[in-house]
């Protein structure tokens, strides 16, 4: 008797959240999926006629190149984030000034991301700070092309999403019992062996979270490639905006959105599956 009543209370409590998600997440997603299978209207919008035109257009070699580049850029940016975040998070977790360093990690969030991207433009442009300093020091004769290319896109993406990788990794390292490393060494592991065999498996869930937290926003990036990228570094996010605003091909924009979502989903599921083994042992631990 008691259990069903408890469930009812749960449903009631979950109702506002459920309603919110349905209205503002599920319904728009459904609209996008539907639009992607319709014909484009003459001046934007759609005509209610089922069609695979949009998906056929996606297979255009130019578009495929952009999609592949997006994938490649995202992977590179995500892995760079992880490579930087791992030692940083480790150092913060072991530091006596944890709070200070975490605070510093979060500080960038106090400023609009747009302003921060513009700051990067100021740093990287031909007459920017970096070039000026290098010129003044006589290290270079001609200004370097630091901006409006793939390098700048990846650099700024890494900058933007690094905190999202650091924070979950910090949590994982902070929770990690470092006497386990001592124990591993005592039992015959080298220093490196102890880190790889004992610490890495223990922080795996943190790595998974960091991967997901950075890969998804990076994959859907739009402002960064728009502002610091060049012709050769457009990403899928930019195509979608162009299709909505300029070309007014809403079904094509929707189709790209669907593809973006699907690829992200597959990526996340793959990473999570890899992390599941670790999750199991974590459940056991608690």
């Amino acid at each position: 008797m008691r259990k069903p009543r408890k469930d009812k209370a749960g449903i009631m409590l979950a109702a506002p959240m459920g309603l919110w998600v349905t209205l503002f997440f599920a319904v728009p997603l459904l609209i996008i999926v539907t639009y992607s299978f319709l014909k484009k209207g003459l001046y934007g919008g759609v005509e209610w006629e089922p069609s695979f035109d949009a998906y056929r257009q996606v297979l255009d070699p130019d578009f495929i190149a952009v999609t592949l580049r997006t994938l490649w850029t995202s992977i590179l940016a995500t892995l760079t984030c992880l490579a930087l975040a791992l030692p940083t998070a480790y150092a913060i977790a072991r530091s006596r000034h944890q709070t200070l360093f975490l605070f510093l990690t979060i500080i960038p969030f106090w400023t609009s991301s747009l302003i921060r991207i513009y700051a990067w433009i100021n740093l990287l442009s031909t007459e920017g700070l970096v070039n000026n300093i290098l010129l003044a020091l006589g290290i270079i004769k001609e200004p370097l092309h630091l901006i409006y290319n793939l390098f700048a896109v990846i650099l700024v993406l890494v900058y933007m999403y690094l905190p999202f990788a650091i924070l979950p990794l910090f949590t994982a390292f902070d929770r990690f019992d470092f006497t386990l490393v001592d124990a591993a060494r005592d039992l015959g592991s080298s220093k490196l062996g102890a880190l790889v065999r004992i610490m890495l498996p223990s922080v795996r869930s943190g790595i998974t979270t960091a991967l997901v937290f950075t890969a998804i926003p990076v994959f859907g990036a739009y402002t960064v490639p728009l502002l610091v990228g060049g012709m050769g570094s457009t990403m899928v996010g930019n195509i979608i905006v162009d299709q909505v605003q300029k070309t007014r091909n809403w079904p094509l924009a929707s189709a790209f959105s669907v593809i973006l979502t699907l690829v992200s989903l597959i990526g996340v599921l793959t990473v999570l599956r890899g992390g599941r083994k670790d999750k199991k042992s974590k459940e056991v631990r608690t």
Binding site: D177, T179, L180, A183, R185, D186, G188, S189, K191, K282
Partner: peptide
Amino acid sequence: LPPEKRPCNMVFQNFALFPHLSVRGNIAFP
């Protein structure tokens, strides 16, 4: 000698068992 080369082994205060390894795995580790 580094800890891994010393002819002594330690039982730690909070056991320091490797959580992702089974009983067998823990004992087999060294």
